[in-house]
Design a protein around this nucleic acid. Structure first.
Lengths: 243, 243
DNA sequence: TAGTGGTCTAGACCACCCT
DNA sequence: GGGTGGTCTAGACCACTAC
């Protein structure tokens, strides 16, 4: 049973300010109230406000100018670089302006492939649960994703699990595990023939392949992921901010 | 003339702790001193230590466990996800374990291409300075990068500028501009024939293309970049941490 | 139970920008 | 000069983990 804890003040302020930017309470290119004003209005300390503003600035969502003020970055407003960011495919599709849908291709327990066993640090006889899904953007196939989890982590049977969940929610719900960090390798390659057919895509065109491993805070590998990403439909866009 | 300001305390602690991780003063997988101990040892407040540790944790360099301690992540130790990260190609090559070198292909003032003018928001008659470079890893061509800067930003002539500088240093030195954030699109494509020749690479193999725009804090576009990235030589690896 | 990281506050001083 | 964000401190309390 998940424990419901009250959300931290920082979390609440975080949600509130992002909502205001999204709802144009603070319009694109416009200025936010000063840190002191926000702190006073919300009844929190300036340090708390600054924690949130620092996060938003790191994602490029706002631009901070010493001696002047804090401004909404109109160029970034529509990009979702938040928690989950590029790793939650449904959300990624949404933030690209499409309606997301998930088609489960297969969902089964099986022996791991050599690459999977190595990535997950599994012994010879351990099994895995493999979730193969196709993510659609406005009905068009955009991402073909395979996620492999050590079977020992699952607390329920494969049949009773919801294959529609984003992978971090899946792990929370069925494994009681929290993803702490992920390592992703990006390559350009060709889609295997059967996959190209599913993506309704010319197999002679190059496609992006993402190879990912997700770990928990104890450095235990939780998921091995292999995703083919059709950038003709979906932009793979990253934002990096400094200072 | 650049103003030399004393480095902030946070900056100094940041450098020190990263150095200690790199030098294995805190060994891979090992535990760091507690926040209070570090604060006392370095003569700063706990909040200052926490600011630095939060940054390192966001890059996956350390793992923090409430009620337990802070540990060096042995899996991430060698990956450079710091400032500059994947955008400083020389550093990227170095952190992949190769000796970096830069070969300047062309460096000239010219009229912008349509895509360049649009990205940089230039009027019809404005010119640009284009810096085309080949980045070598242990002598092997790994990245072919074109960087285009509005000519109006340059404070000196093209001939007297150092083409070996990373792009953010170049802007600091010759334009007095600071990069605040960057937006990058990643695609899989084929290298144009002349470029494949320079990369000594089979033109029928797919390659990664990065299209980037760098902005300053006033949201003014500073640089348009188009880079071809040979992932057969260099891994394009990203680390993302949560919590 | 002791010690750790997580959260939050109140307030000080500084550097910078605008007018 | 007045207001803004940038930096830093000191200290309180809480939640969690190992023992």
């Amino acid at each position: 049973m998940p424990i419901l804890r009250p959300r931290s003040i920082v979390d609440q302020v975080n949600t509130l300010l992002r909502q205001r930017v999204h709802d144009r309470v603070y319009p694109p290119g416009g200025r936010l109230p000063s840190e002191s004003e926000l702190a006073h209005e919300l009844g929190v300390s300036r340090a708390t406000v600054r924690t949130v503003l620092a996060r938003m600035a790191a994602e490029g969502l706002i631009l901070r100018k010493q001696g002047d003020g804090t401004y909404v970055n109109e160029r970034i407003r529509d990009i979702d670089t938040r928690y989950g960011g590029m790793w939650d495919f449904s959300r990624l599709i949404e933030s690209n302006g499409f309606r997301p849908a998930i088609e489960t291709v297969t969902f089964e327990r099986r022996a791991p492939a050599r690459q999977e066993a190595r990535a997950l640090g599994l012994a010879g006889d351990a099994e895995v649960v493999a979730l193969v899904r196709l993510f659609l953007a406005d009905g068009r196939p955009a991402i073909f994703a395979t996620n492999v989890i050590p079977a020992g982590l699952l607390r329920i049977g494969v049949d009773s699990a919801d294959g529609q969940l984003p992978i971090h929610k899946f792990l929370q719900t069925y494994c009681g595990e929290e993803i702490k960090y992920a390592v992703s390798d990006i390559e350009a390659t060709f889609a295997p023939p059967d996959l190209a057919r599913r993506l309704t895509r010319d197999a002679s065109l190059p496609i992006l392949r993402l190879t990912e491993i997700f770990y928990n805070k104890n450095n235990r590998p939780l998921v091995f992921g292999l995703s083919y990403y059709d950038h003709a439909i979906l932009r793979l866009r990253l934002v990096q901010a400094w200072g």
